[in-house]
Design a protein around this nucleic acid. Structure first.
Lengths: 148, 148
DNA sequence: ATAGGTGCAAAGCATTTGCCGCGGT
DNA sequence: ACCGCGGCAAATGCTTTGCACCTAT
């Protein structure tokens, strides 16, 4: 059966080749924020006749069509996640590189207000927190957010 | 007379070569967020015997010593600004690339709280807004923020 | 004197692209 | 059949580095 991202591609009228279907599946199934290298190795496992150039071309295409979002968590490689994944931001554990997602709807509004005050319409924004796990951490309900 | 950044270098016990003095001066005098290429050309104008490799090495050194902050405003090149420039964030005009600085002290606290809630100490963060100038913009007191 | 800085050119790394044969629609 | 896609390797753009010489301290 078609993966969620493959279905989005079809909706947009993109040509569905074997390679794209595999890459779409990998991305649909990923629960983390893989970089191109990782997408490539996962895709290769499903179908070895895929080149990394195609992965680069495909993630770019998907990004241009608003299906994927490109992220920069430091480390010099772009990382990707499906956009239809709900509004959230990222907290990167600087010791392990682990990425934790969190939502803060109120933030959005505050940022738009700041932009408006400066005479701008907010088009997009980037917000990443870099933190160190506290030694005395008690696991709370919110801390359950799945690492990605 | 020594530039502000040159003085910081001396305080830290860094060897002050002619090239470093020139680069320090360029950075001290810059009111924008230059990338390495721009720092290089400004430095070359003051003293042509400077290589771009030295600029790369120097901004890196200054960053490691906390004198410069590296920024990423998109476009694939790192940009730099002195750290002792007050806490602020950046709004990038997506049409012109112009960078506008704004401060929002309250933000800091909110972000630290979010991190704490997730069990982390906030070490650093990244916040950039990307916006489009509003056609009907009336220039207000806050809009005077100098583009950088 | 000597540890460290500099210039140059080459290497690195992530990403893009030209070319040409191949495959979806 | 036609146009776009994919593989490969070469190109690109930013940044780093090896090496031999030079300079602050």
């Amino acid at each position: 059966m078609e993966s969620r991202i493959a279905r989005l591609c079809i909706e947009k009228g993109l040509k569905m080749t074997g390679q794209r279907r595999v890459i779409a599946r990998v991305l649909s199934d990923s629960e983390d924020h893989p970089n191109v290298e990782v997408v490539y190795s996962r895709a290769s496992a499903l179908d070895p006749r895929i080149s990394i150039a195609t992965v680069y071309r495909t993630v770019r295409l998907l990004e241009e069509h608003g299906i994927l979002a490109r992220r920069d968590f430091g480390g010099g490689r772009a990382r990707y996640e499906p956009t239809e994944h709900g509004k959230h931001h990222h907290l990167i554990d600087i010791e392990t590189g682990r990425v934790i997602e969190f939502a803060d709807p109120e933030h959005e509004r505050v940022l738009a207000e700041i932009a408006a005050r400066l005479g701008f319409d907010l088009v997009s924004h980037r917000l990443e927190l870099f933190g160190r796990r506290r030694a005395d951490t008690v696991r709370t309900a919110t801390a359950k957010a799945r690492g990605r």
